[in-house]
């Protein structure tokens, strides 16, 4: 079973390997028997999502950078995973999509980075709300932990709820505590 780098709990300060129970299913591929856990494209979800969810499958949706996250807003509570794709690590659209899912649409489930997922973006992805990663560069959870927490301070508030410098300076904790 493939492995994911995953945060060791929502507020944890380290990352660990986690078994990945989900299978990515291509648009022209059958989902397999046994009502397995699947990750499918947005268009496949729009076609088959209701039926598969009704059958009792766990369903995740994989969004390409050009797919609007707004279209998923009402389905978020039914989804087990939202996977956002980085066709190249330099393509930062999924960072905005992640921020929107977490901050505007209140998505609290697994948010997974797929595609060209490299540790040089670990802190950006983590800060924007990603909590699981399919690394494409051979990174380990230990390396991921170093990359994410290398910076002792940050300047912006983001989905990871770290206190930004402007709050640390005036000793006002974030609203969430």
């Amino acid at each position: 079973m493939p492995k994911l780098i995953s945060r060791d709990g929502p507020e944890a300060s380290s990352f660990v390997w986690r078994e990945d129970g989900f299978t990515h299913i291509a648009d022209d591929e059958a989902p397999g028997g046994e009502l397995g856990q699947v990750i499918i494209s947005l268009s496949r979800f729009q076609a088959d999502g209701d039926r598969w969810l009704a059958e009792g499958r766990s369903v995740g949706v994989r969004l390409k950078p050009e797919d609007p996250v707004e279209g998923l807003a009402y389905d978020l509570p039914r989804l087990a995973v939202v996977a956002l794709e980085f066709p190249k690590f330099r393509d930062g659209r999924a960072l905005s999509a992640a921020a929107l899912l977490r901050e505007r649409y209140g998505y609290a489930g697994e948010l997974r980075a797929v595609g060209e997922v490299v540790r040089d973006l670990a802190k950006e992805m983590s800060r924007c709300g990603f909590d699981s990663f399919e690394p494409s560069d051979g990174s380990t959870p230990e390396q991921w932990t170093i990359s994410v927490f290398r910076f002792r301070h940050v300047y912006q508030s983001a989905a990871d709820r770290r206190a930004p410098a402007f709050r640390e300076r005036i000793h006002i904790p974030t609203a969430e505590g």
Binding site: L95, A99, L121, E124, C128, F151, Y155, Q156, A158
Partner: peptide
Amino acid sequence: RQWSTLHPEFSYL
């Protein structure tokens, strides 16, 4: 400067 430095969302425009 502070807002834009290592901005998590706007570093891969």
